[in-house]
Structures are given as C-alpha cells and as structure tokens.
Computed example of a mutant assay.
Amino acid sequence: MRNRKKKRGYKYPVILTPEGYDKMVQERESILKVKLPNIRAEIQEAKGFEKEALEREKNFLLHRVLRLGQWINNSQIIEPTPIDLSKVSTCELHAELVKREGIKEIVLSPEQSLSMTQWEESCRFELLLIVQGPARILINED
C-alpha cells in the first residue's frame, strides 16, 4: 500500500463575497502589522500574570493569522446575484417596506378619504390629490 501525504491546512473551500475577502485580508494585515508588534513590545516589559495573559493573547492572534491565511488561500469568491424585484408581489414589497426605519404607513378604510395639499409661495394651499379608501399609503422619511 502506498503512503499518502496528509494534506495540511484547511481543506474545504471558503465561499466569500469580494467584500468579505477584503475584510479577511485587512484583518490579517492588521494583526501582523499592528497588533502582534504591540503585544511583543508589551510582553518584554510585562511581568508575572500580565506577561502570561499577553502570551496567551499573542498565541490567539498567531492562531487567528494562521486560520485567516488558510481561509484566504482556499477562498472561492462569488459575486452576489441581484434580486429580481419584478417577480416580487406589490403586497410583499409593501409588507417589507413597512418594517423599515423611516417608513410610516397610513391606512384608510373604505369610508375614509385623504386630501393631499401643498403650500404654495403665494401663501395658499394647492390641492394635489384626493385618495379614497381602502388604501395603504407609505411615507418614506429617509
């Protein structure tokens, strides 16, 4: 029987968006260029329990760099597919928008009506529209 070499590292592909990939690369670079040199300098000055805690943090960061490197090397970058909103019903769109911050809903029963006016520079209101219920009106304040 032939001996096979064991594969080292992370063997499964990591599926990432371009933004996720960039975040991983930035985190890895930040650890290598900023955090580890700072901790190494602090370890030289520390004593006792503080030194042990810094050593544990250094080991954690080294492990994190290793794991991030494995993920980056085995990453498969995908572009997110845009959602085709033309296939989503108006009712579903309305229900989703109502949940959002900055959205107000006015609900009119069949016997109610609502008139919308606009203030004109000539110091008077101008009638824009009269809506007769039943109606659900969304106001986007964003």
Rank of each mutant, 00 (worst) to 15 (best):
Q76S: 04
E101K: 09
K33A: 14
E19G: 01
I106E: 00
E55A: 09
A53F: 05
A53T: 13
P80Q: 09
A46E: 04
S109W: 02
Y21N: 11
I72Y: 01
A53P: 05
A41Y: 15
Q44F: 14
W119P: 13
E27I: 07
S115G: 10
E126L: 05
Q44H: 14
Q26T: 15
V14R: 04
P13Q: 10
I72T: 03
I103D: 14
M24S: 08
E126H: 08
D22G: 03
E19L: 00
I103W: 07
E52M: 10
E120F: 06
G48K: 12
P110W: 00
I83F: 04
K11E: 10
E79P: 00
C91E: 06
R100S: 07
L93H: 03
I39E: 08
G48I: 10
E29T: 07
K33L: 15
E79T: 15
E92C: 03
I72P: 04
D22E: 14
K87P: 01
K33S: 05
K11S: 11
S86L: 07
E111T: 08
W71C: 04
S30P: 03
E96M: 02
L85S: 12
K51D: 02
G69H: 02
E79V: 05
L68P: 05
L66I: 05
L62Y: 05
Y21A: 15
K87G: 00
V14Y: 01
E52W: 07
I43N: 01
T81H: 09
K104V: 10
I103F: 13
P80S: 02
E101G: 13
E121H: 01
V98A: 09
R124E: 04
L68C: 03
V107I: 14
A46V: 06
E120Q: 06
E45T: 12
Q76E: 03
E52C: 01
S86P: 04
E121M: 02
V98S: 08
K99G: 03
Y12L: 15
E120K: 09
R67C: 06
L54H: 10
M116L: 12
K23I: 03
R64P: 11
S122R: 12
A46M: 01
S115K: 05
F49P: 07
P37V: 09
I106K: 00
G48F: 14
L32P: 03
W71I: 04
